[in-house]
């Protein structure tokens, strides 16, 4: 079976600064891949390339057997920082509804040349899907709230629901637990583990030790990319990725 994400000898630079060099990565259907690496090592850039938001200068990137930009509707994305103002006058329900935008009233992806110009109405199928997605992330009780009134953890759940409501084949999360406490972090990863039974998942994290309990493979990104199976991660590998002077705490699985 062909990989859901297939990246070959990809190079990317912002201006004159090379950010990613010679990246090769194949993600199999149903995989739960962790992506770790130092700040400014290119993790988020790699996600944006997979999402088709950035174009590589050279190399190829295929997602679900399409060009990356053509596949983005089949992906669910949870950004690290919400790219909207928190005081925007919109309810949780309306935000999650936006995740259904490319689907018709039967829940199928619209296609054809003019699919994007289809005037939008929220169908009853959409409403049911929004209800389901919010229930799945345990945020059903806040559906009528303004987004500005949510806590960090609640907002993260809403963003996850927005990504799930479009029935993605691959879920991509950028540091989903950076701004929330540890108990919530475990809850979110338990939820991801459950979701992994029906979709492939890529998650960026700065916490190798924590995610290695959940993911099947870890990709270490620091301009280049090296993959490790979870059980092979030890101090040596971590130092290789982050350079010297890493404080490590031993932990058993």
């Amino acid at each position: 079976m062909s990989p859901v994400i297939d990246i070959r000898s990809l190079n990317f630079a912002y201006g004159r600064v090379p950010t990613l060099s010679g990246i090769d990565l194949q993600v199999a259907e149903g995989e739960f891949l962790g992506i770790v690496g130092p700040n400014a090592g290119g993790k988020s850039t790699l996600l944006k390339l997979i999402l088709g938001l950035l174009q590589p200068q050279s190399g190829s990137i295929r997602v679900l057997d399409c060009a990356a930009s053509a596949a983005s509707r089949l992906l669910g994305y949870v950004p690290q920082y919400p790219s909207f103002p928190r005081d925007f006058p919109v309810t949780v329900e309306q935000v999650v509804q936006l995740g259904r935008l490319s689907l018709d009233q039967n829940g199928r992806q619209r296609d054809g040349k003019w699919h994007a110009l289809w005037p939008g109405r929220v169908s009853s199928t959409d409403r049911r899907a929004v209800h389901r997605a919010l229930a799945e992330v345990e945020a059903g009780d806040i559906s009528k709230r303004q987004i500005g009134s949510l806590s960090g953890g609640q907002l993260q759940r809403v963003l996850l629901a927005r990504a799930l409501v479009g029935e993605p084949r691959i879920l991509i999360l950028d540091e989903p637990t950076a701004n929330i406490d540890q108990r919530m972090e475990s809850e979110i990863f338990d939820l991801l583990k459950a979701l992994n039974t029906r979709m492939s998942i890529l998650v960026v994290s700065h916490d190798v030790a924590f995610i290695s309990r959940y993911v099947s493979r870890v990709a270490c990104v620091n301009q280049t990319l090296v993959c490790h199976n979870t059980d092979a991660i030890d101090g040596h590998v971590i130092q290789e990725v982050y350079g010297q002077h890493v404080r490590m705490i031993a932990h058993g699985h």
């Binding site: 088709g52 938001l53 983005s72 509707r73 994305y77 790219s83 936006l98 935008l101 490319s102």
Partner: peptide, 21 residues
């Protein structure tokens, strides 16, 4: 006709782009 698309673009351009808007 396009209030959903306008909301998507006004609220979060990046996400709107990912949904094919």
């Amino acid at each position: 006709a396009y209030h959903r698309q306008f909301l998507a673009v006004v609220f979060d351009e990046e996400f709107a782009r990912l949904r094919g808007v």
